[in-house]
Design a protein around this nucleic acid. Sequence first.
DNA 1: AAAATTCTATACCGAGCGTTATGGAAAATG
DNA 2: CATTTTCCATAACGCTCGGTATAGAATTTT
Lengths: 202, 202
Amino acid sequence: MENALPACKGRPREFCTDQALASALRVFWSKGYEGASMADLTEAMGITKPSLYAAFGNKEALFHKALDLYEAEKLAYIREALDQPTARGVAEHLLRGALKAMTSQWEPKGCLGVIHSVACGAEAESIKAEVVARRASSQAAIVGRFQRAVDEGDLPANIDPAGLANLIFAVLQGMGVQAGSGVPSEQLQSMVDAALALWPSR
Amino acid sequence: MENALPACKGRPREFCTDQALASALRVFWSKGYEGASMADLTEAMGITKPSLYAAFGNKEALFHKALDLYEAEKLAYIREALDQPTARGVAEHLLRGALKAMTSQWEPKGCLGVIHSVACGAEAESIKAEVVARRASSQAAIVGRFQRAVDEGDLPANIDPAGLANLIFAVLQGMGVQAGSGVPSEQLQSMVDAALALWPSR
DNA sequence: AAAATTCTATACCGAGCGTTATGGAAAATG
DNA sequence: CATTTTCCATAACGCTCGGTATAGAATTTT
């Protein structure tokens, strides 16, 4: 049933689904799931409502595909951070990667995950749960990475890996809140510098 | 025109406006401005819609009064923090006060300000602007307090007061995001401990 | 060329939103 | 006790929402 083969009968689609999905992502990213109306989405995507429903199912399915795209393209820095050789490198890559992702000139400011982690209407309940679950898995990976750093002596033995991972995620989320509410990127830059200056050395 | 004198003609109001406002605050706090429908509000407040409009004006005016109440009652720890003798005391009071305020057993989890700082629909645009402005003024006060600490030698001279204030506010906001999305308070407690362990000593 | 299939576009649907008008009951004033 | 004022309750208004049915245009395969 999936459009596995583009060589199908009938009139072919007149728009690029990937491009339309990218446009939808930008709408969700800047307005949130509930704040993004179907009219907003179709206008940004350049298609009509029936085309959207035929191509993506419904609003929630469209959001899920946009979320996958976001995680694959905009959250790559989290996966890269896990590969850094030192715990400080992990933290630095997380902070600087998040800063870049949240303050791009061509993309909406802020973080799609943060927007949907805070409570809104009842219709977005399952979406919030999904976003929160994805963040929890990322956070668990960071906890494991910091635990390894403690075991290897890369981090002082007296620090709590879970607490530290929780803290750095809180900083990332706070950065998302601030970036999404108009705080200029220079201010966020100084925040990142302050955070790295405080990082437990040696 | 204000109900300055309770000794007025006609039938008196049958409900307590303060109590109703407190109930409305809890609804806004847990569902957000847009997520809180008039039906949600009137049910929680125990009054009907015309009574609400007669007593508070409209939904936005009700929110503003609830926001004032929130700031006066639940954000007292921020004003108290400014009076702490040391910068570390300020930070500790902020972090522990926020943790207590955001994880109370009898109140909604999370932070009313954070909820409305992230983008949602267009109707909440002015509300977001108001909340963001109030936070900015609090943040500016913390910057000034940290600057004083640097001048007094309470903080190392090489640190940036604005960056540090921005960082601690990001932690508070991240705490709000996490508390509002189900992270248990013990985990947030360990995050606070980790943050204070990293605080620039001496 | 003809038939079949899938596209796009317009209009509509039921539901929920914030808000307000209408009516009747209740309490204070004179 | 009568009047007046303000309350409460029901219902309706205009609007937007997500989602869909219908119909016509366009491009494929047979």
